[in-house]
Amino acid sequence: MGESVIQTALCPSGRASEVDPPPLHAPPPARAHFTPLLKSTFLMLDAFSRAATAADASGSFVGGSQLADLKAFVAAGNKRLDAVKAISTSASCIVTDSVAGMICENPGLTSPGGNCYSNRRMAACLRDGEIVLRYVAYALLAGDGSVLQDRCLNGLKETYAALGVPTGSMARAVAIMKACAVAHINGTNGDRGPQTTNNTITLGTTAKGDCSALTSEAASYFDAVSSSIS
């Protein structure tokens, strides 16, 4: 049964068996090019190992301006860790809000025939949102987008195309996630009006810091997700 369905799909005319067998001396069919899998750990870099890898390509020492950049990375390290923590601890909130926002703008998604219709598909959508956010959190921690690119985005567009996932909607959810995550990093995610915004950050005498470099870095990772799937 299954076989006949496949045959019909592959050969609509139903004449699969009438095709002549290849002659005995025919050259072997061209094989798909086999690319060996690299160990994935080698493809994940952080700010430090990227500097070392770049220097190794030219056989030079890591020094001067590259070291100055890395020192700046270390100096702002606690801010970075706070940003990763802000995203990680509010992950399910960020994901749920962004998927809910996507559906609010396009209620057809949860109607019969929509791509989030049925709890199974809705759950898959939430799960994908969480995966994307998790890899963005990794990239932000590493200070380098390679982990996101290699372990999450590589082939994602093709997978979504094969599964029929509307990438426009997904990109919209990612855009909302970006706004949410940036607000969480800046501590401007309060929901009770302007008087109480920053309440998570300005408790006590802690002043609000400048996180613009980190928020723009995080935003660039979300943008990379959007552009790679659309």
């Binding site: 750990t41 994940m44 870099l45 952080d46 430090f48 190992s49 070392a52 990794y138 921690l141 590493a142 200070g143 982990v147």
Partner: peptide, 8 residues
């Protein structure tokens, strides 16, 4: 490999 990539 580095410390951060190992953690990740």
């Amino acid at each position: 490999k580095s410390t951060i990539t190992t953690v990740i």
